[in-house]
Write a protein that binds this DNA or RNA. Structure first.
Lengths: 139, 139
DNA sequence: CGGCTAAATGAGAATCATTGTCAAACTCAG
DNA sequence: CTGAGTTTGACAATGATTCTCATTTAGCCG
């Protein structure tokens, strides 16, 4: 247990590296299963469970964004800018996503939460709609 | 199909009434399964599938709020005020929720979406934290 | 550098919430 | 009251995610 040392870093295995690599190669939101497919197509033999484990670990470490869709699927994406928390505008037809910024939202959230006695705040802001291309197709 | 008539109102069966009733008796966020349990304890014989169907219908009709937790479970709660769209501040330890209002958020969302060419906007704003009571307990 | 031990992996079974199926029960219009 | 079309309920099916466990591997020790 070595209680004196801090949190131990996870081992760097080739499959964990592969997941990290795949994430870095694209900045789309994709499900764990989808990332797994991508890895398989690149010739990797990673198991689905391993992809899930890696993704979860990365999400906890704050290195990837994780959003839960309304169907219960969890989507992951490399978190480009660690320096600033941002939000998303997602097309509910084609899935395309764009980053957006919500000015003053963080401060506002902190303030309201404090007023209600809440601590350790976290928040989710997702805006969904139908993008121009999909609207043109009649959606 | 009767294309001339508008959307037909769903039939009012005793099980649908029971679901509505249960929802009205409490304003907590609970899962479909949890509501089903509650109904069974009240002596109702509603089936789980029926509870799911009713809850979905109500959510689509805007009569109940539905939020998806980070574990993929969908929680439902009677929506007190139909007149205004509101958001929630939820304790991630004990589940308590309070309604909050986000001034100008709707307009802001519309504007940003329009700038990106998106239409038919919808949004989710959830703030989670640890409430005073739970913080006191060491969480 | 070779060995060792605990952590990580992979294949598939298991789990959980939710949805689909279909015959039987029920609502509502006439 | 009666018929036609909905809705229901029991249970199977699905789909995503997690667990199990024997096997492999990373990283440390000598």
């Amino acid at each position: 247990m070595t209680p004196t040392s801090g949190a131990s870093a996870p081992r760097m295995t080739k499959q964990r590296a592969a997941v990290l690599d795949a994430l870095s190669a694209s900045d789309e939101f994709r499900s764990a299963q989808s990332w797994h497919d991508a890895l398989r197509h690149e010739g990797s033999t990673v198991g689905l469970a391993t992809v899930y484990r890696s993704l979860q670990a990365l999400a906890e470490a704050g290195e990837v964004d994780a959003v839960v869709t309304d169907t219960g699927e969890t989507l992951y994406r490399r978190c480009g800018a660690v320096d600033e928390h941002h939000h998303h505008l997602r097309c509910r037809v084609c899935g395309a996503a764009e980053d957006i910024e919500v000015p003053q939202f963080e401060e506002w959230a902190e303030k309201v939460a404090a007023e209600h006695g809440f601590a350790r705040i976290d928040h989710t802001v997702e805006i969904t709609g139908v993008c121009a291309a999909c609207t043109a197709k009649g959606h």
